[in-house]
Write a protein that binds this DNA or RNA. Structure first.
Lengths: 97, 97
DNA sequence: CGCGACTATGTCCGATATGACATAATGCGT
DNA sequence: ACGCATTATGTCATATCGGACATAGTCGCG
């Protein structure tokens, strides 16, 4: 681990020697975002392959067209919960993401 | 599809014939809960195998001991986002869940 | 038992996500 | 070009989730 990172961690209460096996916050963050984007894509693909409009899909989701648009746009205001719910509703497989 | 269910769906704007391929709300809900519980278990297991206390893990997560307890207890106030973040921080593999 | 370390549960209130709505952009057939 | 369907973007009030704190419960171990 480079010094910069170690300093940033220890200064916030991490103990060197334990830290190694853990992912830093920024890495976690980027993996989380990647995951969300993958879900977005999967959802849009499935919705399109079923020839559904965002508005119709929104009904199945019990949400709104604008939310669906945001889901597919990878809008940061969309939670993993909603993404996963959407994927399940449209019949997607969580493992494939 | 049994009549009861079809009525419940159509009455809320679903069109029979499209509905079939989609999961009902309650089924989505239960699958979502199952997913969360699986994450909970995975997190607790990994934390224990690393011999970390909830308090120490909370620091890595930049959260609090009580949140970690709730994460592991499957408390409904815990989002998928937080669960996934916790799993990533502790080095777990999302796919294994 | 008593005590310390750990975990569980409850509450508060600030932060973030939500559906709904309005409206703007885009596409597409005629 | 026009009209119509679809999708994108912005905003808002309400709901849900968040960390923090207090406190209660649990589990060894002397």
């Amino acid at each position: 681990m480079d010094k910069r990172k170690r300093d940033a961690l220890t200064s916030t209460g991490w103990r060197v020697g334990e830290v190694d096996e853990f992912l830093g916050l920024t890495e976690v963050e980027s993996r989380l975002i990647a995951l969300k984007l993958a879900l977005s894509d999967q959802i849009r693909q499935r919705r399109r392959s079923k020839r559904l409009t965002q508005a119709r899909f929104a009904k199945y989701l019990r949400s709104s067209q604008s939310r669906v648009a945001k889901i597919e746009a990878g809008d940061p205001s969309v939670s993993l919960d909603l993404l996963m719910r959407a994927l399940l509703v449209i019949g997607g497989d969580p493992r494939s993401v």
